[in-house]
Design a binder for these strands. Sequence first.
RNA 1: GGAGAGGUGGCCGAGUGGUUGAAGGCGCUGCUCUCGAAAAGCAGUAUAUCGGAAACGGUAUCGAGGGUUCGAAUCCCUCCCUCUCCGCCA
Length: 431
Amino acid sequence: MIDIQFIRDNKDLVKEKSEQKGYQVDVDRIINLDDQIRSKIPAMEEVLKQRNQLASQFSNSTPSQEQIEQGRSLKDQASSMETELSELKKQLNVILLGVPNMPLSMVPLGLSEDDNQVIKKIEPNQLNFEAKNHWELAEEDSLIDKTRATKVAGSRFVYLKGGLVRLQFAIINWVMDKLTDEEFIKQLIAENNLSISSKPFVPVLPPGIVNTSSYHATTRLDAEEVTYKLADDDMWMNASAEHSLCNMYQNEILPEKQLPIRYLGYATSYRREAGSYGKDTEGIIRLHQFDKLEMEVFSSPETGLEEHKLMVAIEEYFVNALNLPYQLLEKCTADIGKPNAKGMDIEVWFPGQKKYRETHSADYMTDYQARSLKTRYRKSDNTTELVHTNDATVFAFSRILAAIMENYQNEEGEILVPDVLKNYLGGMEKI
RNA sequence: GGAGAGGUGGCCGAGUGGUUGAAGGCGCUGCUCUCGAAAAGCAGUAUAUCGGAAACGGUAUCGAGGGUUCGAAUCCCUCCCUCUCCGCCA
């Protein structure tokens, strides 16, 4: 959620920046409602004060009939004022939740994802044979069995098998090794001229199902078209580890020295993919279920942007280490998503499909999520401030497995093991 | 799923209708004492919001929401959560 005070102070800016993201915001309505609320509060508090004063007289005596009547009427006044107020607050809240986070000034303007800016592009090597799609490479049912998964669960589910599964676990272990190594983090920070803590990431296996309020707290992926809701319980299945990581510290005030908090979450994500009928029906690019290694960071406002840059650097490190051709995109205002102030995507080259496809995304939410979650930290001067949150993919599984399959295929249709992973696969050469 | 107990400040814990925003202890901060430390003593130590330059003051908050009452941490209702026993289970 955005700061109401910020809206009051920057009416035109809020309107303009929201429009840049494709949101129409009725700023005047917001200010009007807020004015009404502000003007009604002192009057109500005055009535409450009188009520408290009256009541406190009778610690050792009994009130007269007249005083009882007076107290009763004060109570009625207060409660009708309160009803009115809470109605206004409810209205304001609904509108306020619709206001997106403000994009940082460095975010390029745009109307759709087509306006995302390519920051860096690594061209793929020319192959001297016709590259296959990953589902063609999966030959028969040895690596991917979709037919039987469809029989058992439905479309967009798969049985992943054999070498692909070993590959996934190898990657998990490799990532765990790197991101929990302080020296590695320190080195990346130095290479990217950042000046933030070298604290390593803490691996987390978060809950896979969250309650409704936590589910809405991400303000991303919190729509019924995206997420599965359990029929008999007030619970939602994670569409991303973010659903259960970003809200860990809701209603908490963290000691400053605890920041930054860096988590490496591993979770299975479930998505309904309603509205994407017919898209990517082949292969394992778009499934209802996939595993994901994800970073979630809570930091001070001062370091939030550098944390974002670190996470992008981490993403690039891993993609580079796998030798995957990719392009790095600065997402434009229309594509960064409601809670984001800035966002970057990585698209990896899929030679079988002859295009770059989104595999990673890094999102910087500033204090937008923290405000509704009331996640704060206590500063050295004893005041509290909202934390900044960052969220980024390390690897989204089925998709990165598909990318490796297509990029590591040879003319014989075999899939070779990337060098960095050989140690994690007991020297295995082919998948 | 069945039966029972309980949710109070950073932590422990008192408090069953009236100066209780909350005793007491621990922790933490400052001061005194000390060469220094410990111990001891003294003082301070929740959050949000409004007013105020500040001092300070108002309001709200004792799991959440609603109700009873002149007055609620204390009584009633609903929900959430935790714990114990039984059942089930990796």
